[in-house]
């Protein structure tokens, strides 16, 4: 049994705010694939409190293409839905590819994209893609609604800017952030399924002839949060697409990553991956482009 004190099911946002206000210590649960695992492991912040289920709240569902080309993705979409959704596949295929690599089929059926980001794990597989698309997180709380760029959403491993009573409702990706881009994601792990990335890298690239006109890179598990690579991205602007450029991009990523040694891998090996994965991702993204 889980060490929880009560369970409430919120069936609308209004009901969620009421439940959250009545029990400020209660924790949100979406698919539960992080929450219930942590509760089972008796992680203090995940035991001894009530859970508020949010998966039946309509405002957090659906994937919509808005009039100005913005893609609005409800936080409760599961990995399976996102992988196969025609709008996602058409406009932000990098996200579809990235979430296809999460856990196993069972994990992808239950795990939500909102839970993946709110759990704030450094290796979350949806994060690098969402960072490169400059995704905006829509947050709703008792004080109203706000839009926060995903890069400002994280405070550290497992920590976000969400305050008690707030819920991440949707992810929004503007047309200018996906149009003309090609993307690829590498999850570098020991197994093909049911494994967490030792290091991961998403590349989103735009080319003009043989030149890179825009490059966005984001690493997972190369620091306390997912990290964009400002130095390498600025360098790439206008550079010819050559092996030398790709190698230099990889080297410059080391300026922005903060690899550490842990039980999964050494810092030396991670640093090596940091230098080679961007080039591989850029090449793969442009294959057939």
């Amino acid at each position: 049994m889980y060490d929880i004190t009560d369970y409430h099911e919120a069936t609308s946002l209004a009901e969620f705010f009421k439940l959250a206000a009545a029990d400020p210590k209660a924790r949100i649960v979406a698919g539960g694939t992080d929450t219930l695992v942590k509760s089972r492991a008796e992680v203090p912040a995940f035991t001894g409190m009530a859970l508020i289920g949010i998966t039946r709240i309509p405002e957090l569902q659906g994937i919509e293409y808005q009039a100005d080309g913005t893609l609005s993705i409800g936080a409760l979409n599961t990995f399976v839905t996102i992988e196969h959704d025609p709008l996602i596949q058409k406009y932000v295929p990098l996200l579809s590819q990235a979430v296809s690599l999460v856990g196993g089929p069972q994990t992808r059926h239950m795990g939500t994209i909102g839970g993946n980001i709110c759990n704030a794990g450094p290796a979350a597989d949806s994060a690098p893609a969402l960072f490169t698309y400059n995704t905006i997180c829509e947050i709703q709380g008792p004080d109203g609604i706000k839009d926060i760029p995903i890069a400002d959403f994280y405070r550290g491993p497992g920590q976000t800017i969400l305050k008690p009573g707030e819920v991440l409702t949707r992810f929004k990706i503007k047309a200018a952030d996906y149009q003309g881009f090609h993307g690829h994601y590498t999850k570098f792990a020991r197994r093909n399924a049911l494994d967490i990335a030792n290091l991961s890298c998403a590349a989103l690239v735009k080319v003009h002839g043989e030149q890179i006109s825009d490059l966005r890179l984001c690493f997972g598990a190369a620091g306390p949060t997912p990290l964009r690579m400002p130095v390498a991205e600025a360098y790439a602007q206008g550079k010819a697409l050559t092996d030398a450029t790709l190698a230099q991009i990889g080297q410059l990523c080391l300026r922005d990553t903060h690899d550490i040694t842990d039980w999964r891998d050494s810092k030396a090996f991670r640093d090596h991956l940091v230098t080679v994965l961007p080039g591989r991702d850029i090449t793969a993204a442009l294959r057939g482009a």
Binding site: Y7, V37, R40, V80, Q106, T107, H109, M110
Partner: peptide
């Protein structure tokens, strides 16, 4: 008991789910 092995798989509304991490 933590969603890693699939021994507890059941079918819920046509989807395979690990029942050990499902309330």
């Amino acid at each position: 008991g933590v969603g890693e092995c699939g021994a507890c798989s059941v079918i819920i509304d046509g989807r395979t789910v690990d029942s050990c991490i499902y309330l």
